[in-house]
Amino acid sequence: MTDTTHRSASPSVADVMLSAIKNVGTSVFPFVVVILLWQFASLFFPRFLFPSLIDVFWRCLDIFSSGAMFGDVMATVLRILAGLTGAFIVGGLLGLVMARSKMIDNFLSPMLTLFQGIPALSWVVFAIIWFHGVEFRIFFIMVMTTLPAFTFQVIGALRGMSKDLTEMVFSFRPTRMKLFRVMIAPAILPDILTAWKVNLGNAARVVVVAELVGATGGVGYQLLQQQQLFDMAGALAWTLQLVFFVLLVQGALTLIETTAFRYRAVSERAL
């Protein structure tokens, strides 16, 4: 593979199809197992405990096809994305200044660690007491709960940057902008994507808690309704909306990883 003139011929269409089917097969398999287990349970337990997944499926379809209900899903999705974006921007900036200055790091690190110990529910209470607008409250809760992780991940990525490579780039006397573009951004990108993957899961779990308070729409609000109606199929269907979203975004991030990080050398031996 080191010689450009002897690259192997591109695989045939049939090979590509086969490997695609294989890929889909392996990624779907775990879900099939969970579905079968649940369906099995539904045969023995009352409907309000383990509703048949067929019911759940129809409920999901209802949500997709009803504009109002799908709007609830989108509202929640936007809240997650807004919160994560906010936390990423603030966390990224904090990470940069903390990696640059030991003093700022000494000051902020304990504070962020403290934040990490505060449960999401406490932030909910604080947000209600401190702020008025529902959307702002939710945004605040989302940012505060994901900020420490983002910041620590950015600092870790910056500190983990190769000193040798950084000095090499420095030896060309880059401007600050160019140093960022040429060295810092590509070096920390893999860690940033991992951080997004981890925080996405956290955010999806926090957002429903945040929505329990005051939101008049969104997945969290709908879940509360299902709880009051004692409707397990509905609760599952709404939960699945978030799961779908997380899977979708994770898939997109993984796609970016596989295309953007082609340069990585991969050992033929598994870890």
């Binding site: 040798d164 490579l165 030896s171 040429v182 590509p186 340069y263 990585r264 050398a265």
Partner: peptide, 12 residues
């Protein structure tokens, strides 16, 4: 500067 090790940026 030519360093002791090649110090190539792996992503380039």
């Amino acid at each position: 500067i030519v360093f002791q090790s090649d110090r190539l940026l792996p992503w380039r």
